[in-house]
């Protein structure tokens, strides 16, 4: 079963498990396409240079070879890369997007071939107008080639494991001095709120200093309304340290139970 909600494609397995993929919009796809164009031009330039060195073969033969190579690369680039790189071209890899079957099944060669062959119609009358407009109005952001091939283009992210030790490990946590309040905090905080706290710590190094102070100030303010810890537990610690302590309490129920 598939469902689309605001550029998110959600698939539900017969076991009742749902997983979702953010769909790639026309702009991000256009950037990927521009990168691919640069790569194609680069490949053709290299081939052109190599062929020009083989002048002894005669201009007629070399022109014929170049025409065929030009045609083959223009059409075959997308097919070959998407097939061998599991739905990605170089441009798509750079932009972190991928072609996949719209039902979550394995991508087949026929699907890759059809979506690339129908590019001819999608680029009409120029600058991907047909494909761009179609993907804007289509609920799955599909161009005509994607509709015919039953494929979608999704965004994906680099998946890294959260490093808890780096965030919370081995440091004194003043909130743990009050186990009954820590237990109440765990009870009152929803998984979504806990996730926001964790994400903010995971991404703290990517924030500008001012933004970082403001963000942790806002999040700390929110969590302070959940449970009222005594003043001595929170005195002298920064908002960021407070959130660090909150995450430690929420995600590590028994200190030392796992090393």
């Amino acid at each position: 079963m598939l469902k689309n909600t605001r550029n998110i494609l959600t698939l539900t397995t017969p076991e009742g498990i749902s997983f979702s993929f953010p769909l790639a919009g026309p702009v991000i796809r256009m950037f990927a396409w521009l990168i691919d164009i640069i790569v194609i031009v680069g490949i053709l330039s290299i081939i052109g240079t190599v062929l020009s060195l083989a002048g002894f073969l005669g201009s007629d033969f070399l022109n014929a070879i170049f025409l065929i190579v030009f045609f083959a690369i223009s059409f075959g680039y997308g097919m070959v890369f998407e097939w061998f790189m599991r739905g990605q071209t170089i441009g798509k890899r750079v932009m972190r997007i991928r072609v996949m079957d719209e039902q979550g099944l394995k991508l087949k060669f026929s699907q890759v071939a059809i979506r690339n062959l129908l590019r001819l119609v999608d680029i009409m009358p120029g600058l991907y107008l047909v494909g761009g407009v179609t993907s804007l109005v289509n609920s799955n952001s599909q161009r005509l080639g994607d509709i015919a091939a039953s494929t979608v283009v999704i965004r994906y992210y680099r998946v890294s494991e959260p490093d808890f030790d780096q965030i919370v490990g081995g440091k004194f946590n003043s909130l743990r001095e009050y186990p009954h309040l820590a237990a109440r905090l765990r009870q009152k905080v929803s998984p979504r709120e806990a996730g926001i706290a964790l994400s903010s710590l995971m991404r703290r190094d990517s924030l500008e200093p001012d933004e970082r102070v403001n963000l942790f100030g806002e999040i700390a303010q929110h969590f302070k309304t959940k449970v009222d810890f005594p003043q001595e537990a929170i005195d002298g610690i920064s908002d960021e340290q407070y959130i660090r302590n909150v995450v430690d309490v929420l995600f590590r129920t028994r200190v030392g139970s796992v090393a």
């Binding site: 698939l11 397995t13 498990i17 997983f19 979702s20 993929f21 979550g104 994906y156 992210y157 998946v159 890294s160 494991e161 959260p162 998984p191 979504r192 709120e193 806990a194 996730g195 926001i196 964790l198 994400s199 995971m202 995600f251």
Partner: peptide, 16 residues
Amino acid sequence: FSFDRETKRHLESLVA
């Protein structure tokens, strides 16, 4: 029971 996006995405990709 959790909202750890990274781990969830990793598992989603495996399940998918």
